[in-house]
Amino acid sequence: MLSLIEILISIFVLLGSFLSLIGSLGIMRLPDIYSRMHAATKSATLGVVLLILGTFTYFLGEGIFSLQLLLTIAFVFLTAPVAAMIISRSAHRNGVELWGRTKHDELQESYPEHLEPERENEKVERP
C-alpha cells in the first residue's frame, strides 16, 4: 500500500507529466508560433514546477533538504516568461506569418518605417 507521502508525490508527478504532455500537444497542434508559445510557456512551466515539487517532497521524506531543487523552481518561474517574450519578439520582427484568422495586429503598426518586416501574403505551408 502507498503511504500518505507517496500518494502526495504520485499526485504531483502525474499532474506534472500530464501538464507537460498538454504543453507538447499544444506545440504540435496549435496553428502559428505565437499560439504555440502560449502552450510552451504556461503548461510546460507549471508541469515541470509541479514535478520538481514532487521530487523535492520525496527527498524531504528521505530527510534531505535539497536547496538546488527549490532554486530550480524559482529559476524556471523567472526565466520562462523572459524566453517567451524574446523568442516571440524576434519572430515578429523578422516577419514570421501570423495565423490567417488573427484579428488585428497593433504591434505591426508601431514599427518605424525602415524597420517594418516584410510579411508574405501567401501562407506558410503547414502540416
Binding site: 508527478v13 504543453g23 507538447s24 510552451a40 515541470v48 520538481i52 521530487t55 530550480t72
Partner: peptide, 25 residues
C-alpha cells in the same frame, strides 16, 4: 520556420528537467 524549432527545443529542455526529476525519485 526556424523560430518554431527554437520553441520546440526550449520546451524540450524543460521536459528533460522533469524526466531527470522522475529518474531521481
Amino acid at each position: 520556420t526556424l523560430w518554431d524549432r527554437v520553441v520546440a527545443l526550449d520546451s524540450f529542455g524543460l521536459n528533460l528537467i522533469g524526466f531527470i526529476g522522475i529518474i531521481m525519485i
